[in-house]
Design a protein around this nucleic acid. Structure first.
Lengths: 147, 147
DNA sequence: CTGGATGCAAAGGTTTTGCACGCTA
DNA sequence: TAGCGTGCAAAACCTTTGCATCCAG
């Protein structure tokens, strides 16, 4: 995945999706805030930060812009698809694919990919307990419905 | 707005202890449903399923049991820590660590782990676009506050 | 018996949306 | 100017919790 430096924001997501983009001062401010940070703020945190510069910005605008920016690959969204938590009765080691559109999850063939994870390491001051690989894409149904 | 959850992700995650567990018929039913399924249902879906056998079960009970079962490693929770979506201004390839207790996210050193991902594969009928590795553990702050 | 578990309902928090107006391209 | 984007507020959701009661161990 190559990334962009302030490209014309009319981007195409993998799959040919065209995204409209008008660079408003709100959007610019959100992007600037996010670029300046190495933390991984939530929408609310971003809202609070941007509000120092644009006191009248609304939380709805923050959410809308985060989506837009993520779609045009200018930022990363760390979670996808209308998030309700999902559960799995199978506790054996295996990986998951998640549909970017509907959030559905399926198992990946066990032999398919073993996540070669250092089993007890420290990163960024964290005591790591485990790791997961997750694949993202479109399920058969959503692939059909998307234009 | 931000909730620094009171969520104690686990009594013992990696360890083998156990958590208070009383096998009620509700808990058994939830577990049975989950074991019988290869899908990865949400709490609501599980609620609907279990209700066919225990019509008076409440959604709150489903949530409480899903947490309990996940803590005792009988099922897998596919998402962790008070979930607000988080965003990242850095679109370059890198991995994340997430705190199981507070949900905080940090970057993993870029050279640390390259997720060796087949770049265009099909799994379980999905068209995969990309993959991610995510590490889970406890941040310095939460490690201290634990127990 | 006793303390953990349940049902119910209400609260809490996050994210989305409808609408009229503003502003970028 | 056109129509995307914004602010505001309400709605829609998902998840958690308080409390009285129930029941598994």
């Amino acid at each position: 995945m190559s990334q962009s430096s302030s490209r014309d924001a009319s981007a195409t997501l993998a799959g040919g999706h065209r995204i409209s983009a008008r660079m408003t001062k709100q959007r610019a401010a959100i992007l600037a805030e996010l670029r300046a940070l190495t933390s991984h703020p939530t929408a609310c945190e971003i809202y609070a930060l941007v509000r120092r510069k644009l006191p009248r910005i609304s939380l709805g605008t923050v959410y809308r812009n985060l989506d837009t920016l993520a779609e045009s690959n200018e930022i990363l969204k760390l979670e996808y698809a209308g998030f309700q938590k999902r559960f799995d009765g199978n506790t054996g080691a295996h990986q998951h694919v998640r549909c970017l559109r509907c959030g559905k999850v399926a198992d990946v063939d066990p032999e398919m990919e073993a996540p070669a994870v250092p089993d007890k390491l420290r990163v960024a001051g964290f005591t790591v307990q485990f790791a997961r690989v997750e694949f993202f894409g479109f399920c058969a149904e959503c692939r059909g419905n998307r234009l």
